[in-house]
Protein backbone atom coordinates (compact mmCIF):
# COMPACT_ATOMS: atom_id res chain seq x y z
CA UNK A 1 0.00 0.00 0.00
CA UNK A 2 2.37 2.68 -1.22
CA UNK A 3 -0.59 4.83 -2.32
CA UNK A 4 -1.07 6.47 1.09
CA UNK A 5 2.56 7.46 1.14
CA UNK A 6 2.49 8.77 -2.41
CA UNK A 7 -0.27 11.12 -1.36
CA UNK A 8 0.99 12.13 2.05
CA UNK A 9 4.78 12.19 1.84
CA UNK A 10 5.00 14.95 -0.79
CA UNK A 11 2.78 17.10 1.46
CA UNK A 12 5.10 16.41 4.40
CA UNK A 13 8.01 17.59 2.27
CA UNK A 14 6.18 20.76 1.27
CA UNK A 15 5.42 21.56 4.92
CA UNK A 16 9.03 20.90 5.82
CA UNK A 17 10.19 23.21 3.04
CA UNK A 18 7.93 25.94 4.49
CA UNK A 19 9.59 25.46 7.87
CA UNK A 20 6.52 23.83 9.41
CA UNK A 21 6.89 21.17 12.05
CA UNK A 22 5.23 17.88 11.10
CA UNK A 23 3.96 14.76 12.87
CA UNK A 24 2.85 11.47 11.37
CA UNK A 25 0.05 9.29 12.77
CA UNK A 26 -0.28 5.65 11.73
CA UNK A 27 -2.93 3.02 12.44
CA UNK A 28 -0.91 0.18 13.99
CA UNK A 29 -3.65 -2.18 15.16
CA UNK A 30 -7.36 -2.60 14.60
CA UNK A 31 -10.10 -4.78 16.04
CA UNK A 32 -13.55 -5.18 14.61
CA UNK A 33 -14.89 -3.05 11.84
CA UNK A 34 -12.48 -0.13 11.78
CA UNK A 35 -12.68 1.85 8.57
CA UNK A 36 -8.95 2.26 7.87
CA UNK A 37 -6.51 -0.64 7.71
CA UNK A 38 -3.24 -0.99 9.59
CA UNK A 39 -0.65 1.28 8.06
CA UNK A 40 -3.05 4.12 7.19
CA UNK A 41 -1.37 7.50 7.67
CA UNK A 42 -2.43 10.96 8.72
CA UNK A 43 0.14 13.76 8.57
CA UNK A 44 -0.31 16.94 10.58
CA UNK A 45 1.51 20.28 10.58
CA UNK A 46 1.97 22.65 13.51
CA UNK A 47 -1.11 24.64 12.52
CA UNK A 48 -3.21 21.49 12.85
CA UNK A 49 -3.74 21.10 9.11
CA UNK A 50 -3.74 17.48 8.05
CA UNK A 51 -3.76 15.11 5.08
CA UNK A 52 -4.72 11.43 5.01
CA UNK A 53 -6.94 9.61 7.49
CA UNK A 54 -6.83 7.08 10.30
CA UNK A 55 -10.59 6.52 10.58
CA UNK A 56 -13.75 7.50 8.84
CA UNK A 57 -13.53 10.88 10.54
CA UNK A 58 -14.38 9.87 14.13
CA UNK A 59 -10.99 10.27 15.76
CA UNK A 60 -9.08 12.63 13.47
CA UNK A 61 -9.74 15.59 15.78
CA UNK A 62 -8.23 13.86 18.80
CA UNK A 63 -5.30 12.54 16.76
CA UNK A 64 -4.50 16.01 15.41
CA UNK A 65 -4.46 17.43 18.96
CA UNK A 66 -2.04 14.71 20.09
CA UNK A 67 0.07 15.18 16.97
CA UNK A 68 0.53 18.89 17.71
CA UNK A 69 1.45 18.00 21.31
CA UNK A 70 3.99 15.48 19.96
CA UNK A 71 5.64 18.20 17.85
CA UNK A 72 5.91 20.36 20.97
CA UNK A 73 7.39 17.80 23.37
CA UNK A 74 9.22 15.73 20.73
CA UNK A 75 7.79 12.49 22.10
CA UNK A 76 5.96 9.66 20.38
CA UNK A 77 2.67 8.36 21.78
CA UNK A 78 0.32 5.46 21.19
CA UNK A 79 -3.37 6.31 21.34
CA UNK A 80 -6.22 3.86 21.72
CA UNK A 81 -9.75 4.47 20.63
CA UNK A 82 -12.59 2.09 21.27
CA UNK A 83 -15.80 3.16 19.70
CA UNK A 84 -18.85 1.12 20.54
CA UNK A 85 -21.61 0.99 17.97
CA UNK A 86 -23.98 2.83 20.33
CA UNK A 87 -21.49 5.61 20.99
CA UNK A 88 -20.81 5.91 17.30
CA UNK A 89 -24.51 6.19 16.71
CA UNK A 90 -24.89 8.87 19.40
CA UNK A 91 -22.31 11.15 17.85
CA UNK A 92 -23.63 10.38 14.41
CA UNK A 93 -20.53 8.62 13.10
CA UNK A 94 -20.40 5.46 11.12
CA UNK A 95 -17.26 4.14 12.83
CA UNK A 96 -17.14 1.01 14.90
CA UNK A 97 -14.42 -1.22 16.25
CA UNK A 98 -11.23 -0.35 18.04
CA UNK A 99 -8.08 1.20 16.76
CA UNK A 100 -4.57 1.89 18.06
CA UNK A 101 -2.77 4.86 16.52
CA UNK A 102 0.94 5.65 16.81
CA UNK A 103 1.87 9.34 16.66
CA UNK A 104 5.44 10.47 15.98
CA UNK A 105 6.99 13.86 15.40
CA UNK A 106 9.36 14.19 12.45
CA UNK A 107 12.62 15.54 13.78
Amino acid sequence: MATDAEEIFPQIERWRAQGQRVALATVVQTWGSSPRAEGSHLAVNERGEFVGSVSGGCIEGAVVTEAVAAMEDGKTRTLEFGISDEQAWEVGLACGGQVRVFVEPLQ
Binding site: M1, A2, T26, Q29, G39
Partner: peptide
Amino acid sequence: DKSGMLANVEGLFVRAYAR
Protein backbone atom coordinates in the same frame (compact mmCIF):
# COMPACT_ATOMS: atom_id res chain seq x y z
CA ASP B 1 1.87 -5.87 1.28
CA LYS B 2 0.68 -6.39 4.85
CA SER B 3 1.23 -3.74 7.52
CA GLY B 4 0.70 -4.72 11.16
CA MET B 5 2.26 -5.84 14.40
CA LEU B 6 5.18 -8.22 14.00
CA ALA B 7 4.01 -11.68 15.11
CA ASN B 8 5.50 -13.09 18.31
CA VAL B 9 7.27 -9.85 19.24
CA GLU B 10 5.83 -7.35 21.66
CA GLY B 11 5.43 -3.82 20.38
CA LEU B 12 7.07 -3.91 16.94
CA PHE B 13 4.99 -2.47 14.11
CA VAL B 14 5.78 -3.06 10.45
CA ARG B 15 4.61 -0.56 7.83
CA ALA B 16 4.82 -2.05 4.34
CA TYR B 17 5.17 0.41 1.47
CA ALA B 18 4.80 -2.13 -1.31
CA ARG B 19 4.47 -1.21 -4.95
